[in-house]
């Protein structure tokens, strides 16, 4: 892999050709908000939070764009903020759970995004309330799924696909009722629990296996 340099927020950063802007920025210690990016998985640009501004003012999802020599990008700008901040605020409003007691608290990607953007609770409060809480789905003997915490990043689905060839988990429903569920035969699940491990927000919850048996 050849090396090249790109400019992030006025600073020259070393990059490997073939890497994406997001990967390069993260490797250089420059955080860009993201929820659906997971190292090793194909980026799908679903969360729309990793928007960066190109030299011509265009906003692009940095997780899907490979670096090009001499690229100049901004990770913070009024235009990015106008596009991304309302999305995060909406996500928090629709995220029913409080952080206290959440198994993901402390290593939660949503918490990271919130603190990076310094989300103002007052701005979140002006939004209309989300639909009623939904019950937790019992997925199989190994894990459960909490639709109220789910951000639909698709990491569980892509993980299952990457490891087992075809994903047993998939999206069901439309609009804000979309959730993740077993699509087809859940008995085929090999319970590798990689999906649970990679869930960035504590939506997939491993059961106490000893108790389950």
């Amino acid at each position: 892999m050849s090396k090249l340099t790109i400019n992030i927020d006025g600073k020259e950063v070393q990059a490997k050709s073939g890497d994406t802007i997001l990967e390069t920025a993260l490797a250089a210690g420059k955080y860009i908000p993201h929820l659906c990016y997971c190292p090793g998985l194909k980026p799908e640009a679903l969360c729309r939070l990793c928007l960066v501004e190109m030299a011509d003012g265009e906003l692009i999802t940095s997780c899907r764009v490979p670096v090009v020599r001499g690229m100049v990008i901004k990770t913070k700008s009024p235009a990015i903020d106008r596009a991304v901040r309302p999305t995060v605020e909406l996500l928090i409003k629709y995220h029913h759970e409080r952080c206290a007691g959440c198994p993901a608290s402390g290593h939660c990607e949503l918490q990271t995004v919130m603190s990076h953007l310094k989300i103002d609770r007052k701005r979140v409060r002006r939004l209309r309330p989300p639909p009623a809480k939904r019950p937790i789905d019992v997925m199989n003997r190994c894990f459960d799924y909490d639709p109220n915490r789910c951000i639909l990043c698709g990491i569980c689905i892509r993980t299952c696909e990457a490891i087992h060839g075809e994903s047993l988990l998939y999206y069901i429903g439309r609009g804000h009722e979309t959730k993740v569920a077993f699509y087809g035969d859940e008995k085929k699940c090999e319970t590798c629990l990689k999906c649970v491990e990679r869930c960035p927000v504590g939506t997939l919850l491993a059961k106490n296996l000893i108790e389950a048996k």
Binding site: P131, I151, L152, G173, G175, H176, T178
Partner: peptide, 20 residues
């Protein structure tokens, strides 16, 4: 908001919020 495929956050939640 009903026809949104649900995969990206701004469309999924944003259109629902605008509707509300």
């Amino acid at each position: 908001q009903r026809e949104s495929c649900g995969q990206c956050i701004p469309c999924r939640i944003g259109t629902k919020q605008m509707f509300d």
